[in-house]
Design a protein around this nucleic acid. Structure first.
Length: 114
DNA sequence: CGGCTGACGAAAA
DNA sequence: CTTTTCGCCAGCC
């Protein structure tokens, strides 16, 4: 299987996964990294999302860390903006943490490896 | 060209 | 709960 690490392919896979996140759900960087075949590249996922998809219209606010905590809340133009978007998606957010993260969490590997 | 940092993760203490 | 360590790669100084 594709064990070769391709930055372009990796980014494309990340975009694809993030774009298919259902409303009212959220996923983690590690989950995406795993889904694309790079378990330890969670950081690269964050970097790829760091550019916010550059007008790709990706629901980056649905991507949080493994603990369901919003690390990039200040990257959406204003603090609390990300939580607001999540709340609009039907996800309860308290402070920087998603409420019921366990049931809100969406595993992309289930939709990719299906 | 080397070192630091970073929307991270997981394990260990 | 907090803090530390290791891993991974890319971008910046």
């Amino acid at each position: 299987m594709k064990s070769d690490y391709d930055p372009a392919s990796f980014a494309a896979a990340v975009y694809d996964v993030v774009a298919m996140i259902p409303r009212g759900r959220a996923t983690s960087y590690g989950a995406i990294a795993r889904a694309v075949g790079h378990a330890n590249m969670s950081r690269m996922v964050g970097r790829v999302m760091g550019v916010c998809g550059e007008s790709l219209g990706l629901p980056a606010h649905r991507v949080v860390n493994s603990q369901g905590q919003l690390s990039a809340r200040e990257c959406f133009g204003a603090p609390g903006r990300m939580a607001e978007l999540l709340r609009d998606d039907g996800v309860e957010v308290v402070g920087n943490r998603i409420v019921g993260w366990r049931k809100v969490f969406w595993d992309p590997s289930e939709e990719i490896n299906i």
